[in-house]
């Protein structure tokens, strides 16, 4: 049962990789990286249960956190062109008008 689920998640990961390779726009790629991270979380969970070590589930939660923060960082970077400090209102207006790719 767990083996079937693991293989299914792996097939999903391969399909996401195809979209990441082919994906025409930037947002396709950001979304596919985020979905790949989610699949990684699920894969860690099922692999832990498959090999009889369910203590890996905590680590899967940490991966979910990293995935979330990473996606936010990438998107914030493409919105404001820099990380860390807060953007100015003028810059938000200009970055909204220029459509990224």
């Amino acid at each position: 049962m767990f083996a079937f689920v693991t293989i299914t998640i792996f097939v999903c990961m391969v399909m996401i990789m195809i979209r990441l390779f082919a994906g025409p726009t930037l947002y396709d790629r950001v979304l596919s990286l985020n979905t790949f991270g989610t699949c990684t979380v699920l894969f860690i969970g099922t692999v832990g249960l498959l090999f009889g070590r369910p203590d890996f589930l905590d680590i899967a939660l940490l991966y979910a956190l990293i995935n979330f923060v990473g996606t936010i960082a990438v998107l914030k970077f493409f919105r404001y062109r820099r990380l860390g400090d807060a953007p100015e209102t003028q810059e938000i207006a200009t970055s909204e008008s220029e459509a990224p790719q």
């Binding site: 990441l20 390779f21 990286l33 790949f36 990684t40 991966y63």
Partner: peptide, 15 residues
């Protein structure tokens, strides 16, 4: 796309 794929590569290495 290369940056996104290198993220995928390191997730696979982590797995």
């Amino acid at each position: 796309a290369v940056v996104m794929l290198s993220g995928v590569a390191s997730l696979l290495a982590a797995l």
